[in-house]
Design a protein around this nucleic acid. Structure first.
Lengths: 211, 211
DNA sequence: GTTTTAACATACGTATCTGTTTGTATAATT
DNA sequence: AATTATACAAACAGATACGTATGTTAAAAC
């Protein structure tokens, strides 16, 4: 029953795809490799041929998803200060649009949120945190640029604005992914973003005099 | 080895306490009843005497935690409108203080966040959502009262303020509980609340005329 | 004081999952 | 065309977890 190289790659992909669905439905720890094998239409032999064990399968699955967070935010610092806030808001909204439209990414994120870390998949968590840290730094810099030229409300520091944005996005997505997605993620999310960024931009009597 | 009623209640409580720690450390699905038994200093026989199975044990553990969310928010509508925002902010801050100080509640919340729902513990999720819904309604009413008398910024509707607050709290707690709690939850949380409520209160040029 | 029964501990049977090993047909190599 | 290595399937062995059944002791009940 030897298959050609292309066929083998197909089965490998079908295993990854099945693992994504099974992990999403049953949870990573409760799902057995036989569940994944049956969902993929193969036996455990195929899985053990392509992957060394369940952890390895999970890590490979995690590597297949390309997190486009950074690409979107990378260059926002180079924008003129007057457009920085607008650009961040648009980026976040666009990120919500993509998540709402991409079931693959929804499943991956849900799996990652519900994943019982602490045992053998520490590398995933560390990589996740590393990405988050870089993301935070970039947002800090962007908000600092807006702040330095008076486009950020006096109530907000760059750091506090970054955290407020992160927490709002995280809470929004947790609410939508972890507890049945019963509302329009993109619409409600962008509405919330609009209001939050409105308060970022709003220059009030208490606003500090810019630099 | 028959114990007195009080002793039996002690072992039951020790089992619940051990389950809380073990579920928190190893995850609900990967933790075995033998793990819990050893952590409690008993055998599985004791667990099966007091509880019918792992799901039942989990549900009983969930019932032990009294969620004081509602009590804090219940009567805020009766406050004078001028104090409503201040009271909600204080309540949320106080809730953060309690979570930061109560390791028991931290573990329960972490377990609930990481729990692979969808199989047999749907009642937990439904109860959680029911509490959340009531909480949302109360917040909506409170913000509506503030709005009706002109204490809520024109950028925010009662519903959008409720959601922003919920998402911020949820993201904050997820960040702290799910990924190692590496920052001061109460301090940073209350700082974020201060700024968010600052934008709630801030009356700008675009604010609508009250009443 | 005897009997009963509560509160467990211990032992058992079974299903399941994992990792490995062996078998095998076929694509690739020569 | 013969050989070899590949891509799996099938079988095997070990561990683990679950639920139950049975045993045991001491507290209650009478």
């Amino acid at each position: 029953m030897r298959r050609t190289k292309a066929e083998a790659e197909e089965t490998r992909n079908s295993i990854l795809s099945a693992a994504e669905r099974v992990f999403f439905e049953k949870g990573v720890s409760t799902a057995s490799l036989d569940d994944v094998a049956k969902a993929a239409g193969v036996t455990r032999g195929a899985i053990y041929w392509h992957f060394s064990n369940k952890t390895d399968l999970f890590l490979e699955l995690y590597n297949t998803v390309n997190l486009p967070l950074e690409d979107m935010i990378t260059r926002e610092v180079e924008r003129p200060a007057a457009e920085v806030l607008c650009y961040i808001e648009k980026s976040a909204g666009h990120w919500l649009d993509e998540l709402a439209a991409d079931e693959h990414r929804q499943r991956i994120f849900t799996i990652l949120l519900r994943c019982p870390y602490g045992d053998d998949l520490l590398p995933v968590l560390e990589k996740q945190q590393e990405v988050d840290d870089r993301h935070t730094v970039m947002l800090d810099n962007a908000f600092a640029k807006a702040k330095s030229e008076g486009f950020l409300n006096g109530n907000w520091t760059p750091q506090s604005a970054t955290k407020a944005l992160r927490w709002m996005m995280e809470g929004l997505c947790s609410d939508w992914l972890l507890f049945g997605r019963r509302f329009d993620l993109a619409a409600e999310g962008k509405d919330g973003l609009k209001r939050l960024f409105g308060s970022f931009r709003q220059i009030s009597a208490t606003a500090e005099v810019p630099g």
